[in-house]
Amino acid sequence: MTTLQLFMYAGAFILVLGVAATLLVRDLIRRLIALNVASGGVMLLLLALADRGDGEPDPVPQALVLTGIVVMAAVTGIAIVLARRVEQLDDDLEEVEQ
């Protein structure tokens, strides 16, 4: 096995893991974590592909991953805003019921 393959398979593994958990886990925060894990997998794949061979790595995929990380941060932010809103509402409903 080469380093490239190691990184690629690891990336694929983490991606599959994350996506499966995103689909199966019901707790909102943990789902969000799973989503972030999955995106880490894809990024690993891209960066491994950028660094094939001996020369300087291709800057384009690195820039793409950088973009991807920032996008995921924004997604995480808005997801947490929503998740906390949802749970607050659930709490309020519970309080009303009690």
Binding site: V19, A38, L45, L46, L49, A79
Partner: peptide
């Protein structure tokens, strides 16, 4: 909010699949 969050999860998961396709293309 709950509906929006559900939408977000589906949409971002979909994007990840596409990102993987992008990675394969590259």
């Amino acid at each position: 909010a709950a509906a929006a969050l559900r939408y977000l999860f589906v949409a971002v998961t979909g994007s990840l699949f596409f990102l993987l396709a992008v990675a394969l293309t590259y």
